[in-house]
């Protein structure tokens, strides 16, 4: 490659232009064939425009970045920064061929998708959402607003940080980060936090109330009260673990599970304990007033 040309340097505007193009158009043309491929090329357009003047080089650069690409768009933007740095070096005569750039993209996009999804969709977003949901359910419209503002600050800041880290450290820097075990520690740490919050969310949002009571003479045994004596909230906990086991270990389709759970809820609402139409309860809901039981009766209501 021509080493006699004057060096071309990207301006801050070029790099930021690439960053904002990625932020706003990463999933504009999301598709089964290339996933974020065209978005990556779109992101590179200010860089290509600055670095290359020869039409053949421009075509080659566009082709190079239109290939299949898919990663987590926020944490994964470290790849974009590194690739921009590589293109800049290449345009200035460094010995970097298409394979070198492709191997960085395809080599990093998988691991960073895993790391990124765990950190953003798996931890940050559920935590922020649960704070917002908790407030909104109490009728406070600051819930969605606070969620949106916090999310924008954290996610945009995170994306910018990763993007610029990638650009300033280059691919060696990114590789070092991946090899140093820092990412493993981040994932483990995110796993601790994520699990604690999920556990708390289970307690807050999963609600099952087993309504019927058994009467033996005048002694009343209510299922829910008996279970609460064992441990309050035992049923939702076991039920959530069961759901996880079905989804993760048994590979049950979540949509099928949705339908089944909806049917369980509906069946659980049918009032078939006690005289129909007068009083009684269903499995999950006590909604008809019942008179006190007669002596020596064995009833389930």
């Amino acid at each position: 490659m021509a080493t006699d040309k004057p060096p071309v340097e990207l301006t801050r505007g070029d790099v930021m232009g690439a960053f904002w193009r990625w932020t706003f158009f990463s999933h504009s043309n999301y598709n089964y064939e290339r996933l974020q491929g065209t978005a990556f090329a779109h992101m590179m357009t200010p860089v290509i425009r600055r670095l290359y003047t020869d039409p053949e080089e421009i075509k080659a650069a566009l082709r190079r970045h239109l290939v299949f690409f898919n990663t987590e768009p926020n944490v994964g933007s470290v790849i974009h920064g590194a690739v921009i740095a590589m293109e800049e070096q290449r345009a200035n005569g460094a010995d970097i061929d298409d394979d070198g750039i492709n191997s960085v993209k395809s080599g990093l996009m998988g691991p960073l998708a895993g790391v990124g999804d765990t950190i953003t969709q798996g931890t940050i977003i559920p935590i922020l959402l649960s704070i917002g949901i908790g407030m909104a359910q109490a009728g406070n419209i600051l819930g969605p607003i606070l969620y949106f503002v916090l999310m924008m600050i954290i996610m945009t800041g995170l994306t910018y940080f990763m993007f610029i880290q990638g650009y300033t450290r280059g691919r060696t820097g990114v590789t070092e980060i991946l090899r140093s075990g820092l990412m493993d520690r981040v994932i483990t740490g995110a796993g601790v936090l994520g699990n604690i919050v999920l556990g708390a969310l289970t307690a807050q949002f999963v609600a099952i109330y087993i309504a019927p009571s058994i009467y033996i003479n005048e002694l009343r045994f209510n299922f829910q009260e008996t279970l609460d004596d064992v441990m309050p909230g035992l049923v939702p906990l076991l039920f959530t673990i069961l759901t996880w086991w079905l989804l993760a270990k048994k590979g049950v389709n979540p949509i099928l599970l949705l339908v089944v759970y909806l049917l369980i809820a509906l069946v659980g609402a049918v009032p078939f304990f006690g005289p129909a139409g007068q009083c009684g309860s269903s499995i999950f809901n006590a909604f008809y007033a019942c008179p006190p039981p007669e002596a020596s009766s064995f009833l389930v209501r």
Binding site: V206, A207, I208, W244, L247, A248, Y261, A265
Partner: peptide, 10 residues
């Protein structure tokens, strides 16, 4: 009360 278990389990 039941369906959120699926969201959390996912």
């Amino acid at each position: 009360g039941i369906l959120p278990a699926i969201g959390i389990a996912m």
